[in-house]
């Protein structure tokens, strides 16, 4: 059995998303003269769905060649794990910002992010984790007069 091309999966996800948004838009009562609040977004969802159908048809009829530099196998799996870890780490960083403040959260985040990117030199990692948050804090709070998040836990 032939494998479903990646573009076909993307088109299917798009069609499902279009269905979801269309459902919400049809349930919203639009107001306005001649063109209502929901007219343009609804038209755009329909256009997107049509384009997704064209993409689906095209990808099934004439599958695109796999890019020469595309990752595959174990390399791809490791890459995706790194990306997933980075997304989770960044989410944790954003979550920690209001609780631990800008300096502490950024420093810890930078240590982890450096390690994820393969920086194995402890002096470099610690220097970046200290210098970057302090420099940014000073730049924004002292020079630009914009406050960065302070810690709810430590005041």
């Amino acid at each position: 059995m032939r494998r479903v091309p990646a573009d076909a999966w993307v088109a299917l996800v798009l069609l499902v998303a279009c269905g979801f948004f269309l459902n919400d838009l049809l349930a919203t009562e639009g107001t306005g003269a001649y063109v209502k609040t929901t007219t343009l977004p609804t038209a755009l969802v329909v256009v997107l769905a049509l384009l997704a159908l064209i993409l689906l048809g095209g990808s099934l009829l004439r599958p695109a060649a796999r890019p020469a530099d595309a990752l595959a196998g174990a390399e791809l799996r490791t890459g995706l794990i790194r990306v997933g870890t980075m997304i989770a780490w960044t989410t944790a960083f954003i979550f920690a910002l209001p609780w631990f403040g800008y300096l502490a959260s950024s420093a810890v985040f930078l240590v982890g992010a450096n390690v994820l990117y393969g920086n194995r030199r402890p002096v470099s990692v610690i220097a970046i984790a200290v210098i970057v948050p302090v420099a940014l804090l000073l730049f924004f709070e002292k020079f630009m007069i914009v406050l960065l998040p302070s810690s709810r836990l430590f005041g």
Binding site: F93, A113, N119, I128, F140, L148
Partner: peptide, 12 residues
């Protein structure tokens, strides 16, 4: 070194 700083700058 650069990309962890880029993401910190982006958040900031």
């Amino acid at each position: 070194v650069l990309f962890p700083i880029v993401i910190t700058l982006s958040v900031t």
